[in-house]
Write a protein that binds this DNA or RNA. Structure first.
Lengths: 189, 189
DNA sequence: CCTCTTTGTCAACAGCTGTTGACTTAGAAG
DNA sequence: CTTCTAAGTCAACAGCTGTTGACAAAGAGG
């Protein structure tokens, strides 16, 4: 039918809506700190619907986070300017955290007994290899891992800053050090 | 009495025992992933005793972790060799995680709604300033924060490696890069 | 209008969590 | 031996969690 009043019951739409809300919550607070009632409420839906559509809370996490995380955005650009570019992104990152953020998700959910291992597998099977093949050179996986490590550490620092009153390293000089630290792992010697 | 068969009921001893067990568990799994029954069982004690002695699980965390964490071990040595020294410690860190480990505790409990803010305050009120005053130079707090950030990132990487089969950066060349990355923040330009 | 499938809600259930107050026991003091 | 206090145990309680199966409503097709 030709859009009489926009469909009121659209399974695909509500599914996607739940996923979007879940991505934001899982990113901001981590898997264990999020309740299904909380996510369902913000999605304007009954909690039972999450289990109907995704099987379980873990299933929702897998579909909304594990299957959707990508590092391609990090690798768009030349290697020479990688450090400065990524450092700029991390420093000026929007603190409202509206979308699915790879580093934030991993940093906030890695300690979870339920999904920690899933994140570890995603990291070593997809993300690290992808970065490694982009890097090339010697020990690419290990250098890729240390790049990820550097970003995760900065993410936690951001969380510490948000919880307390710790200042972010917003000075030019220190940000440049951070950029050089990242570039260190890109350059093969 | 002169030690007839070693006292069987020693409040101070059991208290300290609970603290030691709690330190190991909180370090290895994080605050939220540890149950009081679990800690009490390993300490050979009834769970209720934790509340009797420390008021609450949070109180135990505060006394066993927050009040006991120190960074003095990191700052023993000259600045010139800081990077190499700390990198060596982190790379060769005992994976059994037997004791109270500052970086592991923060990395594994920072996402906790209960104690996350406590960790943030401890960081910005005690640890960062202490490292900063040891560093000296320009923007000492920010450089200190980035050193902590680097260590926290590496800690998470270690957790990813333990959960999965990700290789640690154990090659000489990559470890040296990690050391240089740390040294970057010690050297004031 | 009737029917059947999809979409969604509702109440309830187990399981686990930290926590509490009443009880018991060990061990020193009188 | 009796008493009294510190040390520890026990069962139970609320509160929360994810999850389930029975029910209700919407809307398309006959």
């Amino acid at each position: 039918m030709a859009n009489p009043k926009t469909r009121q019951r659209d399974a695909t739409k509500t599914r996607e809506n739940i996923i979007i809300v879940a991505q934001r919550h899982f990113t901001a607070k981590g898997f264990d700190a999020c309740g299904v009632r909380e996510i369902a409420a913000e999605a304007g839906v009954d909690p039972a619907l999450i289990n109907r559509y995704f099987g379980s809370k873990t299933g929702l996490f897998e579909e909304a986070v594990i299957n959707e995380i990508t590092v391609e955005a990090l690798l768009e650009g030349d290697k020479e300017s990688f450090g400065k570019r990524i450092a700029g992104i991390m420093v000026n990152k929007d603190m409202s955290g509206q979308a699915l953020d790879p580093t934030a998700v991993v940093a906030n959910s890695i300690a979870s007994p339920t999904v920690g291992a899933m994140l570890a597998r995603m990291m070593e099977e997809r993300l690290i290899p992808q970065i490694a093949s982009w890097l090339g050179g010697r020990y690419p996986e290990q250098r890729a891992a240390l790049i990820v490590s550097t970003l995760l550490g900065y993410e936690i620092l951001g969380r510490l800053a948000k919880l307390g009153s710790l200042k972010h390293p917003n000075s030019e000089a220190v940000t440049e050090k951070f950029a050089r630290s990242l570039q260190l792992y890109v350059d093969d010697k």
